[in-house]
Amino acid sequence: MKWPKRIIKAMSAVVMLYLVAALLGSIFPANQFWKSPDDGIELFIETNGLHTGIIMPMHSDAHDWSELIRPQHLDDPTEYGSHILVGWGHEGVYRNAEHWQDLRVKDAASAVFGSSDVLLHVYHLNYPQVYPHYRRSFKVTESEYRLIVEAIKQRFVLDEAGRSIPSPGYGKDDLFYKSRGHYNAFYTCNSWTSDVLRQAGIRTGIWTPFQGGVMRWFLESGPEN
């Protein structure tokens, strides 16, 4: 009877260490002295309570996403948006768990221990506005935005003709795209969001496996000063 108890205690300790590390990682900043420019490209960070993503304009002077994300990918091209919300994550979790209550044990276990079955998730939006509880805005320079774009583009798997590979999403205004990368408990969908921002020099937590660790850096009134 001692070994089961020891195993349970060890597992509990590992979980506690993980949660403490996640809290500390979300509190301590990377790119601590970054400031959002007054005049720049407006982006948004959004969460659905499980996943976070970055909202970007479909077209801008800095980049045009229509080469990879095309109207004809959608069943109804009229849903093609002025902006896109892009996230990255574990295929099983993404396809089967739009919200926390939908998460299956099988998918959760695969996500924790690691899988290369990953997807980019793209929502089409029209002229998004701030919603304090789940969508917050910030601005970046053109050079910062190009770094964000490049980090995301590198995740797309392309076919022999250089085209992205879409598949159906949750509804008529979103799609999944075949992606590259490796998902695990230490590199989650929310870690990816922060990683993209961090590579562009934007302030965020040094390790943010949960959505709250990402969102805390973008307060309701704008980026934390």
Results as ranks from 00 to 15, higher is better:
203 R>L: 03
50 L>F: 10
145 Y>T: 06
165 I>S: 01
180 R>N: 14
88 W>E: 11
167 S>R: 10
118 V>I: 09
209 P>A: 04
160 E>D: 14
147 L>E: 10
167 S>H: 00
14 V>F: 10
202 I>A: 07
4 P>M: 00
197 L>G: 08
121 H>S: 08
60 S>R: 06
84 I>R: 01
165 I>W: 04
31 N>D: 04
112 V>R: 09
169 G>I: 06
161 A>G: 10
51 H>W: 11
79 E>S: 08
113 F>N: 10
96 N>W: 03
30 A>C: 01
145 Y>G: 03
18 Y>L: 04
201 G>V: 04
91 E>V: 03
153 K>V: 15
193 T>Y: 01
37 P>T: 02
60 S>T: 12
80 Y>M: 09
32 Q>V: 15
63 H>S: 02
125 L>N: 12
76 D>Y: 15
187 Y>I: 07
199 Q>R: 15
175 L>K: 04
196 V>M: 07
76 D>R: 13
42 E>T: 15
43 L>Y: 04
174 D>W: 02
111 A>C: 07
14 V>T: 11
176 F>V: 02
109 A>F: 14
75 D>F: 13
183 Y>Q: 10
41 I>W: 00
121 H>K: 07
99 H>N: 12
37 P>V: 09
47 T>V: 07
75 D>T: 05
2 K>I: 15
103 L>F: 06
161 A>C: 02
64 D>S: 10
216 R>V: 08
197 L>F: 00
191 S>R: 07
199 Q>S: 12
89 G>Q: 04
201 G>W: 10
22 A>D: 05
88 W>I: 11
205 G>T: 04
166 P>A: 01
204 T>P: 02
73 H>E: 03
34 W>R: 04
81 G>L: 00
172 K>V: 12
104 R>T: 13
4 P>F: 08
52 T>D: 11
76 D>T: 14
113 F>I: 15
113 F>H: 08
41 I>C: 00
133 H>Q: 14
205 G>Q: 06
110 S>H: 12
30 A>T: 11
88 W>G: 10
105 V>G: 09
25 G>N: 13
3 W>S: 12
220 E>L: 03
63 H>I: 01
130 V>C: 02
13 A>N: 10
16 M>P: 05
81 G>M: 03
129 Q>V: 13
160 E>G: 05
28 F>P: 03
211 Q>K: 07
196 V>G: 03
113 F>K: 13
196 V>Y: 08
170 Y>M: 02
182 H>F: 12
172 K>N: 09
224 E>P: 00
212 G>S: 09
124 H>W: 11
64 D>R: 11
125 L>V: 01
115 S>Y: 07
32 Q>K: 15
199 Q>H: 14
177 Y>N: 01
97 A>Q: 09
158 L>F: 03
107 D>N: 12
100 W>S: 09
2 K>Q: 12
198 R>H: 05
145 Y>F: 15
31 N>T: 02
176 F>P: 08
65 W>L: 06
